[in-house]
């Protein structure tokens, strides 16, 4: 059996509560202390560190607020790649595989998890590079299928429901003022035009009152 791989993160790096200064600057209050040991489903620890470092350059933690690191985007991507999406369970994968025009999209044989494994390998010692060098390396692969997936998955891991492993503490939803999948805006929809409706975010599990299983966790 394969040795279990973990990603160890400082608890203070994940989630938290976002507050704003009078000048509108976001400040994140830390919610957790100690270390969090996340069991990995697909990545090795080394691979996870590379992906985490890359996501952090795509959606950085900076003056405009928290980013991929605080949202735990790498955990989201790890689960997606381990699940049916990563294995291409829902993509047409019968041969022949023929290169075609761009209007036909990705026609390759490799599943997302294979694209990642190869892409990560090409990034080499990425995790040990300085931020500027990391950016340069990413700019060099901007047009690759791997980078296109990585960018898309980073946004997904920032803003999808926390049931999928990202958006820790709903930090992504706090950042954009998304209130979560609420059941009704019957009273609010035509009120206060031009003013932001702001509520503390609620996750799908909180709203329906029971845990919700993502497609990535489905058997078979």
């Amino acid at each position: 059996m394969k040795r279990r791989e973990f990603l160890t993160l400082p608890g203070s790096s994940l989630g938290g509560v976002l507050l704003y200064t009078l000048a509108g600057e976001p400040v994140r209050m830390q919610a957790q202390t100690g270390e969090i040991k996340v069991p990995l489903r697909f990545f090795t620890s080394a691979e996870a560190r590379v992906v985490q470092a890359a996501c952090d350059r795509i959606f950085p933690s900076d003056a405009s607020g928290p980013g991929a690191t605080e949202a735990g985007v790498v955990i989201y991507i790890d689960r997606q790649l381990a699940g049916p999406y990563g294995r291409d369970k829902y993509r047409y994968t019968k041969p022949p595989f023929v290169e075609s025009v761009p209007e036909h999209g990705y026609q390759g044989k490799a599943a997302p998890r294979e694209i990642y494994r190869e892409g990560i390998q090409k990034l080499g010692d990425f995790a040990s590079l300085a931020p500027a060098a990391r950016d340069e390396k990413l700019r060099g692969i901007e047009t690759s299928t791997f980078f296109r997936l990585l960018r898309q998955h980073t946004i997904e891991g920032m803003f999808s429901d926390p049931l999928h492993g990202g958006n820790a503490g709903m930090i992504g939803w706090q950042l954009i003022g998304y209130p979560g999948p609420r059941m009704s805006y019957r009273e609010e929809i035509d009120k206060a035009p031009g003013q932001a409706y702001r509520q503390k975010p609620a996750s799908l599990a909180q709203i329906v009152g029971h845990p919700v299983t993502g497609w990535e966790d489905e058997k078979g």
Partner: peptide
């Protein structure tokens, strides 16, 4: 109701 999940359903 449990399908109010953008990732699985819309994406």
């Amino acid at each position: 109701a449990a399908g109010m999940d953008e990732l699985d359903y819309a994406l």
